[in-house]
Design a protein around this nucleic acid. Structure first.
Lengths: 230, 230
DNA sequence: CGATGACTTGAACGCCATCAATCGCTGTGG
DNA sequence: CCACAGCGATTGATGGCGTTCAAGTCATCG
């Protein structure tokens, strides 16, 4: 559902170190903390590092000149991002909450990949997984209704960040809206509608802790293509 | 703007053969013709070949169960597609007009890439170029108005298939609409509006031969991110 | 405890989709 | 050769989905 390693499709890599697991070279890496709201890198900045989320959550986005924002992806613990290949980032990345990241120098990966086909294949696999996710979002943004988008979002998050059956959303309604191409009020209304229908239960007053009571119901609403979602 | 080789960023590869240009293995390939409207491959079918357009035009799409369609890309002479990596295609591909394609077996490319880092890098570069294009479309589909989308489409096509200053669109209004996430009537209305404003001239009654009279005007409308379009 | 931010809910507007009619071109068969 | 069917495109009329504007609640924090 957005797992970035597909040599091992059911498990996220636990460490960037696994990236180079099969190579002989060791890949230097360091861990850094970013507090809530801080920028990790900006659009069009040189892409010197790639990142893995240790703890917390990251959003990437593009802006239009008048302030309209499109969020490209949410990155959760285990996810690798910033592999924008090409020498410049194509999104701005920010910490949604206090976040710990592991950084790896990109030029080192590239140097390894230059001689090690296995590493090269891993980079390709990760890029391909990204591409696949983004292609599905094209269909979502181009052709799905607001209700379908929100249902798809809940299903995605149910698969990605559930623990003990509870989705604990790190992002606010505006982030979700900008991810789905909607107004935040619309996201709120659809959440309420799903709640009224009995598909969801909210655990906290701010309604970010969510239990999906009827995943099948949501899946039915989130019209999808014949091919599988991930 | 969607050129698939970026070791040589300003030129499309003229032949798939160039794909293996730096490898020692020769890559077998064959040329095939597809008449207007025929399917080249279907979504979720095994991806046994990759393709290069010799002549004509190809569209790829996904469908929702109720018939809503999203076109993923248009492929024009020189473009390589079907590099869906992953063993199955994620879109259906069809010939828009009578089309000639060159085919290359994917497993051969993969075998070469397994030992040849240069080939591996080329595959990665092509995939990355795809990713970049798709990421820009996410912003377009998520946050741009109908007018902005149509302007962006015209600019894209002006860059990709102009000859002698004339855009000769191979696709109909419905294809354009399904590419931009709009109704075809909306596309038609925006074309008319740009014509009325003096941005466009139409050369034929079906209005598929178009001259862009004011590219700057269109660019101004097609709100874009701070980073460059391609 | 007042201020700020996140979220929900209501009301009204507007962009774009939908429905519908018309026109011109293309191709086919009598 | 022409009539006619069918497709592609434009244009008009209408309506609806989602945005925008606005108010109000609740939680958090200085």
């Amino acid at each position: 559902m957005f797992t970035l390693l597909s040599t091992d499709p059911h498990k996220k890599p636990r460490l960037v170190g696994e990236l180079s697991g099969l190579s002989h070279a060791s890949v230097s890496s360091g861990e850094f903390k970013y507090s809530k709201g801080t920028e990790i890198f900006g659009e069009a900045e040189p892409a010197d590092y790639i990142y893995q989320v240790i703890e917390g959550a990251v959003r990437t986005h593009k802006l239009l000149s008048d302030g309209r924002r499109q969020i490209g992806a949410f990155h959760l613990p285990g996810d690798i991002f910033g592999l924008d290949n090409g020498d410049f980032h194509r999104f701005t990345a920010e910490a949604i909450v206090d976040t710990a990241l592991r950084l790896v120098e990109r030029r080192i990966l590239e140097r390894v990949a230059k001689t090690d086909p296995t590493m090269a294949r891993r980079l390709l696999t990760m890029t391909t997984a990204n591409l696949q996710h983004v292609e599905n979002r094209i269909l979502l943004l181009g052709r799905n209704t607001a209700r379908e988008r929100v249902a798809a979002f809940l299903i995605e998050m149910n698969g990605r960040l559930t623990s003990a059956g509870v989705i604990a959303l790190p992002m606010n309604r505006r982030d979700i809206a900008d991810y789905l191409g909607l107004a935040f009020e619309t996201v709120s209304r659809e959440f309420s509608a799903f709640h009224r229908k009995g598909y969801l239960r909210f655990l906290d007053p701010m309604q970010r802790q969510i239990i999906v009571l009827d995943a099948a119901g949501l899946t039915g609403i989130a019209q999808q293509t014949s091919a599988k979602l991930d």
